[in-house]
Write a protein that binds this DNA or RNA. Structure first.
Lengths: 111, 111
DNA sequence: GGATGATGCTTACTTTTTGTAAGTAACTTT
DNA sequence: AAAGTTACTTACAAAAAGTAAGCATCATCC
């Protein structure tokens, strides 16, 4: 019943979970997967996220190369956030979470 | 370049990310995937987690049906934590994270 | 048989992270 | 010229996490 293995968690796994396991990160990536967009779009599409934390997370994600921030040189500056290849490569993760959520998350679980 | 969609994130996705996106949750599930084990084993295998937060997370995970806590009636009480079906169903998620981590996480990313 | 150790936590207190609300700077629309 | 939009930042409060010690229940050691 109790399978004993003395090994500690793999460092790459650990690094991945430390990043992906941060509050809001999953949702930000999911929204960007559905289409590149602007700060205010992210802010609207992710319920309850604060602008402060959204700004922080976007910087973190940009810093570790998951998303990119581009501002065209139009008159009212328009900043677009989009996934990089590293971010797009999370597709299988997002799909797997989606499937699991469909199967196991019902309204009674929300707290 | 900017694909506009006005929809907000799906509630089930949101609920899933709120849970799975909590600090340490991914790692706890990963360790339990490698084998059911005891409190102190989890504590040893997950670097830097505090006993306080580990205890909290285990209660949360039990509360939402991802893991189960069993104590046999042997003399020195031995408590074993293991995944439920709901928890085991996260296999694809864990595998996808593992693959992504292998491809994209190198030592320089750890901070 | 009292001392020491293991296990599975809890408690009190500090530090870090989040949240809230308001503010700001640049530019547009009315 | 006033009011609005976008993309943030800032100051302050609340919540979560970290730290270290404590505790109850057994078990073993001298």
């Amino acid at each position: 019943m109790c399978t004993i293995m003395k090994s500690t968690i793999c460092p790459k796994y650990e690094a991945a979970f430390s990043l992906l396991g941060k509050r809001w990160i999953g949702m930000i990536i999911k929204v960007l997967f559905d289409g590149s967009c602007r700060f205010k779009d992210l802010n609207e599409r992710i319920p309850n996220i604060s602008q402060k934390v959204l700004a922080e997370r976007l910087k973190e994600l940009e810093g570790c190369g998951l998303i990119q921030r581009e501002c065209g040189d139009e008159k009212p500056v328009k900043i677009i956030y989009s996934l990089t290849q590293k971010g797009r490569d999370l597709q299988l993760v997002l799909e797997a979470v989606g499937t699991w959520a469909e199967n196991w998350m019902n309204q009674s679980d929300q707290h």
